[in-house]
Design a protein around this nucleic acid. Structure first.
Length: 422
RNA sequence: GGAGAGGUGACCGAGUGGUUGAAGGUGCACGCUUGGAAAGCGUGUGUAGGGUUACACCUACCGAGGGUUCGAAUCCCUCUCUCUCCGCCA
């Protein structure tokens, strides 16, 4: 949520920033409602002040044995008037709040201006595209030949896009998750969280999935709970409606979760194997920082995500997303894209973002220094990482001519020392 | 799922419908006292919104939302969460 005061005081500036994300956004109705709201609010408060003083006077009068009936009658009218004004006020408030909740975050000034993913800017890369002396197989062929992945049976159980990992594949998946968690907690200083995989409406609203993305999520109607599309939701909401001690910042959490996405409207795109799935595994990094620290923290977070790919020996590049490609809540995002030798292209496997005060304002997440006032903090997060595209790149990059897979050295301790899957 | 008890400020804990933003205590901050500390004494100590150049001041908030009333932390309804017992269960 954007600061209403900021919209009120500098609407052109806010609008200009919003338009770099989406040229169709407008603030007219919000501003019009704001003017009416302030009017009504002042009227309501004036009437309430009158009611308060009169009520006290009535009590005094009655104590003194005077007849207060006429004053009570007058106050009854004031009461009715208050009810009417407050009714209007509530309606306007709700409408304005709804509009406000549908406005995206404004981009950070450093974000390249652009329309869509074609305008993203490559800002870094690591490693080289692997060269093979044979024709590399894709992850589906490898997974099937080695009997470690079973998409058809996953489709039978739940539907397409619900992968089954088997044998060494299942163990590999678990190894990757454990490796990533250990790296982030033991070496990068994150506290491990194992969160709920379902979250309520309030939580989904705070991080920005609601109200606009309801169609993209699995929804348990009976309980009005949503399957989390990312652990960002439960982990960020850990501190919703809280005031953290200033000295406790930055707070850093890393957590594993399964992630669920309906991917509505994306049928026909990337349907093969792991390229686009409805359920996948991810270790998510979340940080809560002071406002002045969030820029620096984003770079640091990106480094923590990159380290996973480096240790697994996977070639990747880093993109700075342009304004038009930023997500709803994000002010600035780096995507990590890992190289898939069989696909011959880069696949997104991490997204590191700063949300500035956008999520924190929606979820009332604040900090307070000793003797100071509560202030809105900043939230950031990044995948560290998602395993689905990662495992595509890993299988394809580490495959050998005989159709087997070399287990990357970093994962061997997590595979009981196993060096090859064959 | 059934029965019962309860949600008051950073914390504990009062609160007959009428200056109760809320007694008392603890904690915290500042000051006095002291060679220094403890104890003691004094003062202060919520959030949000409106308003003001800045103060003042006004409004709201005692789990959430409605209702009754001139007036609600106090009465009524709904929801929610916590605890205890029973049932079911990985």
């Amino acid at each position: 949520m954007l600061d209403l005061r900021r919209i009120r005081e500098a609407p052109e500036e806010v609008l200009r920033a919003l338009h770099t994300k989406n040229p169709n956004l407008e603030l007219d109705e919000i501003l019009a409602l704001d003017a009416r709201r302030l009017n009504l609010l002042q009227e309501s408060e004036k009437l309430k002040a009158l009611r308060n003083t009169e009520s006290r006077a009535i009590a005094e009068a009655q104590k003194a044995g005077q007849d207060a009936a006429p004053r009570i009658a007058a106050m009854r009218e004031v009461g009715d008037r208050i009810k009417a004004v407050d009714g209007d006020l509530k309606e306007i408030d709700e409408r304005q709040h709804d509009l406000l909740m549908r406005l995206p975050n404004t981009p950070h000034p450093a974000v390249p201006v652009g329309r869509d993913e074609r305008d993203n800017v490559e800002v870094g890369s690591w490693g080289e595209k692997p060269v093979f002396t044979f024709t590399p197989r894709n992850h589906l062929e490898l997974g099937e030949a080695l009997d470690i992945l079973d998409f058809p049976r996953g489709a039978k159980i739940a539907g397409s896009g619900f992968p089954v990992y088997k044998g060494a594949g299942a163990r590999l998946e678990r190894a990757i998750i454990n490796f990533m968690l250990d790296l982030q907690t033991l070496e990068h200083g994150y506290t491990e969280i194992f969160p709920p995989f379902l979250a309520n409406r309030e939580s989904m609203t705070a991080t920005g999935q609601l109200p606009k993305m309801e169609e993209d999520m699995y929804h348990a109607v009976k309980d009005d709970l949503f399957a989390i599309p990312t652990a960002e939701v439960p982990i960020t909401n850990l501190h919703r409606d809280e005031v953290l001690p200033g000295e406790s910042l930055p707070v850093r959490y890393a957590g594993y979760s399964a992630c669920f996405r309906r991917e509505a409207g994306s049928y026909g795109k990337d349907v093969r194997g792991f390229l686009r799935v409805h359920q996948f595994n991810k270790v998510e990094l979340v940080q809560f920082t002071r406002p002045e620290d969030s820029d620096r923290t984003l770079e640091e977070l990106r480094g923590h995500a990159e380290e996973v790919l480096r240790r697994l020996g996977l070639h990747y590049r880093v993109l700075a997303l342009c304004t038009g490609d930023l997500s709803f809540s994000s002010a600035r995002t780096y995507d990590l894209e890992v190289w898939s030798p069989a696909e011959g292209r880069y696949l997104e496997c991490s997204s590191c973002s700063t949300f500035t005060d956008f999520q924190a304002r929606r979820g009332s997440m604040r900090f307070k220094d000793k003797g100071g006032k509560p202030q809105i903090l900043h939230t950031l997060n990044g995948s560290g990482l998602a395993t689905s595209r990662l495992i595509v790149a890993l299988l394809e990059t580490w495959q050998t001519a005989d159709g087997g897979i070399t287990v990357p050295p970093a994962l061997r301790p997590y595979m009981g020392g196993l060096e090859r899957i064959a």
